[in-house]
Design a protein around this nucleic acid. Structure first.
Length: 926
RNA sequence: GGGCGAAUAGCUCAGUUGGUUAGAGCACCUGCCUUACACGCAGGGGGUCGGGGGUUCGAGUCCCUCUUCGCCCACCA
């Protein structure tokens, strides 16, 4: 069978994907898991659910390629491999998209009303959602699509309610009256993680507050937000601050508002910052709120939910008419003007500081006093912390473990209510007739009437943070809260979680907490944090910067395999991938070239090997194998070892007395999942060893019918088959396509579920060593040819003079002369002591000389000059190495092995020097 | 402010507990369309491993310090 010249990925990839789906290759069955009596170890990955409205970008491509490589490897390694796909309803993000949509129609969500808006969003999601999952098929994602989950589905909504109610019953969900981060554009609260800092240049305003009854003395406060002074209820100084000690308990006059407020002592005031005096605005600053609570101060609210300054709560008489109704930033300018006019503004300094912004719309966050639901985190964090300390969970790369531990040790409670319409409604109902605590009903089922008085109950208006559904993902997608779910029994705990470090806290840490809280054990044993795709200026690829690369473009141009190979091979553990969006061709050349190379190896092989049955390598008597055969088989064993080492064990194996039962061994914990090292090991084998050497060495054998041809066919097909298996997880399409065409392959067989290769149990390597000698000789001849510009078409004579001390070399070259000649374009003869004049020499292992007569081919004088330089260089190295070996301390203390090795190298150098001297004498006559 | 990490070839990065003459891909140079592959083959140039100091027989690897860059956290009024 012969193949087309070019690999046509654009038709091949979809065909192969369809065949995989039709054969159910990606489908995992609970019944086969050994946890429920089956015979296979399960291996599970849950896909970080992309936003339901997302379209594929290179970040998704990266994330899902990594997952696919791991799950395909696990599948081939014989596990019951399950990859659970799905999408996230993405509360704020999706609501923003739909709000923008209806804004185009001149409407706000309030015009539509809640029910209509939610219906509108639902239909939007139904129509346009899930595109990304379709796109993931194009990159080859081997997920079990029958199990596609959605965080807002009825099943997952049930899990969300169950989790909320259980936590409430345990006292871990509570209602708090707090200052929280508020986005005046999205009109919702945000968690600490959602309110992101951005470094900005602002101003620090120094404002004088006159001290009551102290004739002209005033306290100067420094603030970046003068508009909030309308809500000031005190000024605070540090109790140890000598400058102000006498003023504690006195009053100061609040400018603009013109009312008296007390001077209080609180350690929150930092004597070293600004003037050491801080104004206290409890309703508009989280720290001030705490101070206010400690001192039982009033908490007037002077900025409303839209960020507009007015008298909102307990603020009568605080906001002057000219400021009322102004946006907070306009009010700031105005109030600064007023302060300046009145002389209260003493100075304005520029000030670098970080300001929190909404992570979705970038609006400056406004701290706001309101009632919110919180999750008490400290009890949840404890087992999550312990797991990483014990080694039940590893985080790769290692350095993120420190970050994780640091965050969990200082964890703060989680604000889970959002004033949005799109999401899981908080499962809490209120009765307006009953008195607390009866007026709050937390329920798994909808509540119509108050169970105490029968009055109509109204549900909490808020929805839950999107992450409150995401944190249940590993359990909810497997059927929780149905604890009898066979999927949960078969596949929980899952194995590896693959994501970006940005959501380590948002998501990963919380999933771990949920795993322990609701299932009693960790949701996975490995967290793989990969890097970010960036452009050549190291900027994150993003839609807004316009520096992104569309994975589908790359697939259209070069195929999914090219995309996947480039990403995996180019990404060290935890490092970013740098790609040039302006030169896709160059960026993905590695992957494209590699896929083509594989295709061409396959083309050669199928053309020369034919389709007749082949023998199994195991059935071939060792004596029938040539040196090249033994060499490539031993190289294959090495490649398998290297790949296995780079990938590491699938799961932790050390028994441990902890909820998870097993922990990572120290030597394995951070060693695995080196995907780039695995890729490199496999590439080296198939390209630099199989193609460059083995293939070239056996062309003649394949063209000569007979027993040896059968041996060569068998070994070649075996080696290539194994290479395809090793490479399949990274480049699944081209490998599958070639593998199915190999001789003897039955229909319905898929590489995607073929067995991962393993080393031969008995490996003899004498032939392998012989071939290494031939390789060395070939390299030496090529070097001589290149150095002397001998045209490639021109065959040269090669005389090989084996060193007297090396008895085997003569035999090897007498046997393998043909191979050597073919690979080096040379006619080979093995000679004795006879001198050959006007020749270039090289010396290889054991002192064997490679001699190529250059009569008429070279400039003798230039060659001699070169040789003399080489000799001088060598002399220097010899001196330095001999010096080291003469150092008694080195010889005494260095390991014997090292010293012996060093001696051997020195000896080799000395020998080489002798050869050089002789060569110079022969060639230059000196 | 606290913590973490990085700095190795023009670019992106490997370099396992200190131990052969520091590697790969891409880029570059030279020669080749040698019937599997020019998306290729053969050969080559290029690194005082960020600066300085120290430990050691021996340092890219360990310690200190400085410089530059990046990340995480934080009550930066």
């Amino acid at each position: 069978m012969s193949l087309p010249d070019r690999y046509d990925f654009s038709t091949t990839e979809p065909e192969i994907y369809r065949a995989w789906i039709e054969a159910g290759v990606f489908e995992a069955r609970a019944g086969r898991s050994e946890r429920v009596g089956g015979e296979r170890e399960p291996y599970t990955i849950v896909m970080p659910p992309p936003n339901v409205t997302a379209v594929l970008h290179v970040g998704h491509g990266l994330n899902n390629t990594v997952q696919d490589v791991i799950i395909r490897w696990a599948r081939m390694a014989g596990t019951e491999a399950l990859w659970v796909p799905g999408t996230d309803h993405a509360g704020i993000a999706t609501q923003n998209v739909v709000e923008k949509l209806i804004a185009g129609e001149g409407m706000t969500r309030f015009d539509l009303g809640r029910d209509a808006f939610v219906r509108r969003t639902e239909s939007f999601v139904t129509e346009t959602g899930g595109v990304i999952l379709q796109q993931l098929r194009a990159i080859g994602a081997s997920a079990d699509w029958r199990r596609t989950a959605y965080t807002l589905s009825p099943e997952l909504s049930r899990a969300v309610r169950e989790a909320f109610v259980r936590l409430y019953e345990r006292g871990l969900v509570y209602r708090g009256h707090r200052v929280i981060h508020w986005c005046p554009r999205c009109l919702t609260s945000l968690s600490d993680e959602e309110a992101e800092f951005q470094e900005e240049t602002g101003a620090l305003y120094h404002i004088a507050y006159p001290v009551e009854g102290q004739g002209g003395r005033s306290l100067v406060v420094a603030t970046t937000r003068p508009e909030t002074m309308l809500g000031d209820v005190a000024v605070a100084v540090n109790p140890d601050d000598e400058r102000y000690r006498d003023l504690v308990g006195k009053s100061v006059r609040l400018p603009v508002v013109n009312r008296d407020i007390p001077v209080i002592a609180d350690s929150y005031a930092d004597p070293a910052f600004g003037t050491g005096v801080v104004k206290i605005t409890p309703a508009h600053d989280a720290n001030d709120f705490e101070v206010g609570r400690r001192h039982s101060l009033a908490m007037p609210v002077i900025i409303d939910e839209h960020g507009v300054v007015r008298e909102v709560i307990d603020a009568e008489g605080r906001v002057p008419k000219e400021l009322t109704g102004l946006d907070r930033f306009a009010a700031r300018e105005k109030i600064v003007e007023m302060l300046r006019a009145s002389g209260a503004l003493q100075k304005v300094e520029t000030h670098r500081h970080s300001v929190r912004h909404c992570y979705r719309c970038d609006t400056v966050v406004e701290p706001r006093l309101s009632d919110q639901w919180f999750v008490k985190m400290e009890p949840l964090a404890r087992p999550a912390l312990q797991a990483v300390r014990d080694g039940g969970i590893r985080i790769l790369p290692e350095r993120w473990e420190a970050v994780y531990v640091n965050w969990l040790t200082n964890i703060r409670d989680w604000n889970i209510s959002r004033q949005l319409w799109w999401g899981h409604r908080v499962p809490v109902w209120y009765c307006d007739e009953c008195d607390p605590p009866q007026n709050i009903i937390v329920s798994r089922d909808d509540v119509d009437v108050c169970p105490h008085c029968g009055c109509p109950a109204r549900q909490d208006e808020d929805v839950l943070d999107t992450w409150f559904s995401s944190w249940l993902w590993p359990i909810s997608t497997l059927g929780w809260p149905d604890e009898k779910s066979p999927e949960l029994a078969a596949f929980y705990p899952t194995d590896t979680l693959v994501t970006a470090p940005e959501i380590l806290f948002f998501w990963v840490a919380r999933m771990i907490m949920a795993g322990y809280e609701f299932m009693g054990r960790a949701p996975f044993h490995s967290v793989y944090l990969h890097g970010t795709a960036r452009d050549t200026q190291h900027r994150k690829m993003s839609k807004s910067l316009g520096n992104g690369i569309d994975p589908l473009d790359v697939i259209a141009l070069y195929g999914a395999d090219a995309l996947r190979w480039t990403l995996i091979a180019g990404m060290g553990m935890g490092t970013d991938v740098i790609l040039d969006p302006n030169d896709i061709d160059k960026s993905f050349a590695t992957g494209r070239n590699f896929a083509t190379k594989l295709w061409n190896i396959g083309r050669f092989l199928l053309d020369r090997v034919g389709s007749e049955a082949i023998r199994s390598v195991a059935s071939i008597d060792a004596s029938s194998l040539t040196a090249a055969d033994e060499w490539i088989l031993s190289r294959l064993d090495e490649a398998i070892t290297d790949c296995d080492r780079a990938l590491g064990p699938l799961q932790p194996t050390q028994p441990h007395d902890s909820p998870d039962g097993r922990v990572w061994r120290d030597n394995e914990r951070y060693a695995g999942l080196r995907l780039n090292e695995y890729a490199e090991a496999a590439r080296r084998f198939v390209w630099n060893e199989l193609a460059d050497w083995y293939l070239e060495s056996l062309k003649a054998r394949l063209d000569t019918p007979g027993d040896d041809r059968e041996v060569a066919r068998a070994v070649l097909v075996h080696a290539f088959d194994s290479a395809l298996r090793l490479l399949h997880p990274i480049v699944p399409f081209v490998t599958e396509s070639l593998w199915q065409r190999l001789p003897g392959r039955g229909t319905g067989e898929f590489l995607a579920r073929a067995a991962w290769p393993s080393r031969r149990s008995d490996s003899t390597s004498r032939g392998a060593a012989d071939f290494e000698l031939v390789r060395e000789a070939v390299l030496a001849v090529r070097q001589i040819r290149a150095d002397n510009n001998v045209p490639p078409g021109k065959a040269v004579d090669v005389h090989i003079r084996p060193a007297a001390s090396d008895a085997t070399a003569r035999g090897v070259f007498e046997r393998e002369g043909g191979t050597l000649g073919r690979l080096a374009r040379a006619t080979v003869s093995v000679v004795n002591g006879a001198a050959v004049t006007a020749a270039a020499h090289a010396v290889i292992t054991g002192g064997t000389e490679i001699i190529v007569p250059l009569a008429g081919l070279i400039d003798v004088e230039a060659e001699c000059a070169k040789l003399r330089t080489e000799a001088a260089e060598l002399e220097k190295q010899i001196t330095s190495r001999r010096g080291r070996l003469e150092n008694p301390k080195y010889v005494e203390r260095a390991p014997a092995q090292v010293v012996a090795n060093d001696r051997a190298i020195l000896e080799e150098m000395v020998q080489k020097r002798e050869q050089l001297v002789e060569k110079v004498r022969a060639l230059c006559g000196g």
